[in-house]
Design a protein around this nucleic acid. Structure first.
Length: 930
DNA sequence: ACAGGAACTTA
DNA sequence: GTAAGTTCCTGTT
């Protein structure tokens, strides 16, 4: 057994060493807009000075005993330039208005009494590294204040980083969490990736992901190099190409920790500030706040800002929300059986209660339960901690015992549950063999049905809007960024208050929003008959997930990668130089300035647009745009789909689990994230290959059933236009029928071009089209587009009337409705600003159609789900919803008759005055099923 | 490190 | 012209 030279306690007594990377802060402060405005009366800029001094002030406040040392880069070349002349060669020279601030800043820092180090021939990093190493060896607690990620290599048991601008601290664990490698692997990591800004070569296309992967496998760069011949694919080639360069990159990325310094870390100490000199300097540079601070003995001069509350203006509802003020609250933290049983009894005896789960992750597939909170009456809530596991966490009730007690309660259909985003809680609980039932009131959905666009529908936003109460943010108790704690690491007292408040506020929100919602029978019906019943259906679909073939995607990635490389070379040749194809800015420069190609369109911010339609047009006359178009399309496919989807497969189930969001869109549609399964490619040949990777399990088929022309059918229904209703009732091809009417020809005489035009008009109508938009879409004159539109309305006068009525209604009542009463409020519908008003009018036209379609497919999902529950046959699974399409996995033995039944259920989900037609496709993958 | 814009994907 | 989400780059934190 050894005795440490100094005990930990002794270390804590010693003042920490604070090493400030002055140059990095100087440079960043220089770019902060509100600081850029600062200067003295005679024009000497002082923004960067102010920024750095503010930052030093806040460091002083955070580390009152800290021994602060400021380190700056010296002028001139460093040893790295000798090693590698191109090092930082891309850096533009320092602007004069920054350079002029350096000397004054140094003077001020010296007058403050802080040691200031400016060592020529090395960079500030190296000086910091040297001091940190000395301090580390002495066991002195050291904090490096920097915004530079390269410094992570200096982190040890005693040395940590703080980014004073973002307030994020990073210790060894933090580095691991943030970068995915240990501090001693950071140099390897940086060398492999290289650094564009500093001109350090690395492995081409090796970013953080690849570097972490390799280092996880081999430990060091040297080992990665030793195994370079085993790395497959293009990236393997790139690695082998880089082998010669890598040792140099490693040297360049290494911070030198043995710089010769006149004084050691232990010897450097602050002097008393020279108040007289400081006063003079602050006066000279007109740093008024700092000057004022001198008198009060507060040299920080820091200010706090108050968050201003914004109030909403247009589109306020008639219905008033009456909320009780959030006053005194009484929260229990349940750590013993007696108190638990008391609450259990109360819960069992009540009609409805609010509850919330606390877990380790926002990802419902990974989340583990940490605790549960409950509220029965406003102001009284309880938290049952279960798995808090930080050092010295109190003993908690046994999770299995607690869940066994709660299971009957949570599964009871009699006792109503109130929650915020209950789908999440249901998903988490399902992993503990609890099927949440009695799901009656979800405050997120209450708010969404009440007004989808008044606010976002997360609890913090709802509390602020409907209770005028500002909740404690999760970040405030857990921290943020790399150092964020998971809920199980949070002190039970703190966590308990936070969790109990969640349940309490949920209950209060319900009491505020639900009665307002219930004043409209139509809104209440959307809530009770569509959204709440849909919640468990979506939860089941999420849990089911979808199966993908990662090998197909990997192969596709490879092919795409090869083609992208070819395109890149071609583009560089055409441009006459190397540039980043993904950068619209660089492309603008090359296209419009160097190649002098005329500008066709500008972006909203005034830059020349390089959007697809512009490039399409330019491609007729120039070769480069065509290459760019193909490159963009393919790189999107690769990065978003073929590379990414396999990484998102759950290791628990081997399948892909999306999240459907029920309270996001303005119109009532669902949305999907992580991954978004509602924008999987279909249009291009390459894109369809991605759908081929969405496969059926063994002995199963993928069945995709989509509604045909659902929005146009809804337009026919809502407008009751005779011609349109008849066309649908007779089962005509609607675009062909429209073309025949507009162009006054027989049905069978309609040309392909005429049908295409009619299709564009039909879509345009759904989107609240203008003649201008139609002209652009069809590439025809404005006049001609207007003629088409006039002709259309002449033939379908009911549609014209419906459009006019919708605009009028929207303007009068401030909202429009779907067939089933879902509302969309349009705050801009009577706006003075013509552009905003026009946009609101288009939304007003579109929302009833898009929203009714959303209502219908939701009703269809309910019908299908009810039938599936009845069948209780796990050979049939509903896996996805894509706005007008439902996707199923069905065992091959029953696929034919099941599909027939599902189509029937979808066709009869609602009754309109035109037929509702669903069309099915069956195949081994999603592409075939189309 | 993060926000915002531009570009791409879908119905 | 409607409604979404993700990725990449860029500029500032």
């Amino acid at each position: 057994m050894t005795t440490p030279a100094t005990s930990p306690d002794a270390n804590n007594m010693q003042s920490p060493l604070i090493l400030v990377d002055g140059s990095s802060y100087l440079f960043r402060a220089y770019h902060v807009p509100y600081l850029q405005a600062l200067s003295t009366a005679d024009g000497q800029p002082t923004g960067a000075i102010t920024g750095v001094l503010n930052m030093l002030g806040s460091l002083k406040k955070d580390y009152p005993n800290g021994n602060i040392i400021a380190i700056f880069d010296a002028k001139g070349k460093t040893f790295r330039n000798d090693m590698y002349p191109e090092y930082k060669a891309n850096r533009p020279p320092m602007p004069d208005d920054l350079r002029s601030q350096i000397a004054p800043l140094h003077e001020i820092i010296t007058a403050m009494g802080l040691p200031l180090l400016v060592i020529p021939g090395v960079e500030a990093d190296d000086v910091i590294g040297t001091l940190a190493k000395q301090a580390d060896e002495l066991g002195i607690e050291t904090v490096i204040s920097t915004g530079d990620k390269d410094m992570a290599q200096l982190v040890t048991k005693h040395v940590r980083l703080i980014n004073t601008m973002t307030d994020v601290e990073m210790d060894e664990a933090g580095v691991m969490e943030k970068f995915g490698v240990r501090p001693d692997q950071i140099i390897d990591y940086l060398a492999l990736m290289g650094d564009k800004v500093d001109n350090i070569p690395g492995v081409v296309k090796c970013g953080p992901k690849t570097a972490v992967k390799w280092l996880a496998e081999h430990g060091t760069m040297a080992e990665v190099i030793a195994n370079a011949d085993k790395v497959k694919g293009k990236i393997g080639e790139n690695l082998r190409d880089a082998l010669e360069q890598l040792p140099l990159s490693y040297k360049l990325a290494t911070i030198k920790c043995d710089v010769e310094l006149a004084q050691t870390a232990a010897q450097l100490a602050a002097n008393e500030p020279d108040i007289e000199a400081l006063t003079e300097l602050y006066q000279k540079f007109e740093l008024k706040r700092l000057l004022a601070g001198l008198g009060k003995g507060d040299s920080t001069g820091s200010t706090t800002t108050k968050a201003g509350k914004t109030s909403s203006s247009a589109g306020e509802q008639v219905i008033e929300i009456h909320a009780e003020a959030v006053a005194e609250s009484q929260y229990d933290i349940i750590l013993d059986k007696a108190l638990f049983t008391e609450w259990l009894n109360k819960l069992q005896g009540c009609d409805a209660f609010a509850f919330d789960t606390e877990t380790t992750s926002v990802d419902y597939m990974k989340a583990e339960l940490v605790g549960l909170s409950f509220a029965i009456e406003v102001g009284k809530a309880a938290y049952v901690p279960l798995t808090h596991d930080y050092t010295d966490a109190p003993e908690q009730l046994d999770i299995d015992w607690v869940l066994a007690q709660l299971k009957p309660l949570l599964e009871s259909t009699k006792i109503k549950k109130i929650g915020q985003n209950l789908k999440y809680d249901a998903n988490v609980l399902s992993h503990y063999d609890i099927t949440l039932q009695g799901i009656e009131f979800d405050t997120m959905i209450e708010s969404y049905c009440y007004n989808s666009v008044a606010t976002r529908h997360n609890m913090d936003a709802l509390a602020l809007k409907y209770l005028d109460y500002k909740m404690v943010k999760f970040e405030d108790i857990a921290g943020k960024g790399a150092k964020q704690l998971t809920f199980n690491q949070i002190d039970v007292e703190k966590a308990g208050h936070y969790a109990a408040e969640d349940a309490d506020i949920t209950l209060r929100l319900h009491k505020a929003i639900f009665p307002a919602l219930a004043q409209s029978p139509a809104l209440l019906s959307v809530f009770n008959d569509i959204e709440m019943p849909l919640l468990p259906v979506l939860a089941r679909m999420e849990q089911t997930g979808v199966l993908i073939d990662s090998d197909i995607l990997a192969e596709q990635s490879l092919i795409l990668g090869q083609r992208l490389d070819e395109l890149e070379i071609e583009a560089h040749n055409l441009a006459g130089k190397s540039f980043n194809l993904a950068s619209p800015k660089q492309l603008q420069q090359i296209l419009f300035e160097e190649l002098k190609i005329p500008v066709i369109k500008k972006t909203p911010k005034g830059a020349p647009s390089t959007a697809e339609d512009v490039l399409q047009e330019l491609a007729l006359d120039y070769p480069l745009p065509k290459v760019i178009i193909e490159n963009r399309g393919l790189s999107k496919l690769k990065s978003t789909y073929t590379d990414k989807l396999p990484l998102m497969v759950s290791d628990k189930t081997g399948r892909l689990h999306t999240s459907y969001h029920q309270a996001v869109t303005a119109t009532g549609r669902l949305s999907s994230t992580d991954p978004n399964l509602q924008n999987i490619p279909i249009r291009s040949e390459q894109g369809r290959k991605i759908r081929q990777a969405f496969i059926a399990p063994k002995d199963h088929k993928i069945v995709a059933i989509d509604y045909s022309q659902i929005e146009l059918r809804i337009m026919a229904h809502l407008s009751a236009d005779e011609g349109l209703v008849t066309a649908f009732s007779e089962g005509k091809d609607i675009h062909r029928a429209t073309a025949a009417e507009i162009f006054a020809v027989e049905l069978d005489e309609v040309t392909i071009d005429q049908r295409r035009s009619a299709k564009a008009i039909n879509f345009g109508l759904i989107y609240g089209m203008s003649a201008f938009g139609l002209a652009k879409q069809l590439n025809i004159g404005r006049q001609q587009a207007q003629e088409y539109q006039d002709k259309y309305f002449q033939r379908y006068p009911g549609v014209l009337m419906y459009m006019a009525e919708t605009r009028k209604k929207a303007s009068e009542q401030g909202y429009v409705e779907t067939l089933y009463g879902r509302r969309l409020y349009l705050p801009d519908i009577n706006a003075k600003n013509g552009i905003r008003k026009k946009a609101a009018e288009r939304a007003a036209i579109n929302a009833p159609m898009q929203g009714t379609a959303a209502d219908i497919i939701k009703k269809a999902m309910l019908a299908v789900d009810a039938w599936l529950l009845e069948q209780n046959d796990d050979r049939i699974k509903m896996t996805m919803q894509v706005h007008d399409e439902l996707i199923f996995e069905i065992h091959q033995d029953i696929v034919e008759q099941t599909t027939k039944k599902l189509v029937e259920l979808m066709n009869n989900a609602v009754v309109l005055n035109v037929p509702l037609i669903a069309e099915a496709g069956i195949g081994d993958n999603w592409d075939e099923a189309h």
